[in-house]
Design a protein around this nucleic acid. Sequence first.
DNA 1: CCCGTCGTGTAGCAAGCGCTACAGTAGGAA
DNA 2: TTCCTACTGTAGCGCTTGCTACACGACGGG
Lengths: 192, 192
Amino acid sequence: MATRREELAEAATDYALEHGLIGLSLRPLAEALGTSDRMLLYHFADKDDLVATILRTTSARSVGTLRELPPSRDLRTAVLDLWQAVTTGSQERCQRLYVEAAALGLFGREPYATAVRATNAQWVSAVAAHFCRVGLPKAAARQATVLVDATFMGLQLDEPLDSATQLRRTVNDLADAVVARWGGASDQSGSA
Amino acid sequence: MATRREELAEAATDYALEHGLIGLSLRPLAEALGTSDRMLLYHFADKDDLVATILRTTSARSVGTLRELPPSRDLRTAVLDLWQAVTTGSQERCQRLYVEAAALGLFGREPYATAVRATNAQWVSAVAAHFCRVGLPKAAARQATVLVDATFMGLQLDEPLDSATQLRRTVNDLADAVVARWGGASDQSGSA
DNA sequence: CCCGTCGTGTAGCAAGCGCTACAGTAGGAA
DNA sequence: TTCCTACTGTAGCGCTTGCTACACGACGGG
């Protein structure tokens, strides 16, 4: 059985995934959780503690779903599978939350900047691991991850602006690019 | 001579570029501008009006700097030049502000969602125009723009997390990818 | 039995928010 | 002079924010 704090952390995470992180305030959150702001501040040191916990929880969930992803057939499908995973179900909301946190951290605001740093490191490792699983060397996998992750981020940031087919086409372009760059042998040379 | 409202809009934009959009509130802004919140709300209908104006102003500035960009030598340098333009001086701050606005609009919050939509449309047109200037057909230019813009967005979102050399390498990878995909003749076929 | 700790409810504080009511002042037109 | 419009300062309303002081019940160990 989880502690009350862990229960609240999970529930608060669900709420944040639903309503966003930017305008998050204690009283509406508490009410939705069937408790009071007083209680939240009993179980968490302060709001920053709560937010950091939420971000840690979503990070854990994201990495978890990524780990459960079955190995892809090849590099190209790996990119496509990742996009599928990242835009499906609850994971899409996790990504949205990450974008919000990153935006909040852009100007150095804490605890967002620190939390985003940690989250991103874990996420990059997990994605790189998925690329390694299709035979990509470690260094190449990491390099490809940076490109793929950045593009995914950008696409999700503008997701409501582009049509679904536009998104699909762009992801395909990206997959082509990754294959062209890292697909053949273990070519790890820079190009500039 | 500009109207008082236009003066305030420019100054408020500078302030927002410096301090971010997310925590923006009228009183500190007004004080920094040497006026009062009362005055801001005299010249602008309400805070949303002000914010929308700020976003329109930054959008105009961004598109302006992009238009003044000299034509690139070829497609590959076009990508590199764009990255250079987008991460140099005041333009970097404009991008940061856009990211914030997009994050705020992610959950449909107004006026951000609408403003971001408009801003993005103008921006995409301007970038596509730059690609056209190196001989890319219109449709290909637009397609390449979506990929490049998304990747740039993502890279800037995580900019504080990656090293400068890592960023450069990724942008080079992206440039390679764009050339491989759209570089040769006017190959506009899909690949999936 | 008593006591201390854990959990909870009530009530409220100081500060900040967007916004507004009201009272002006200045300057040009009639 | 008189009036009208454009602009500005003061003061404050109603509300939300994160957070806290205080009292109370439950429960387990001595």
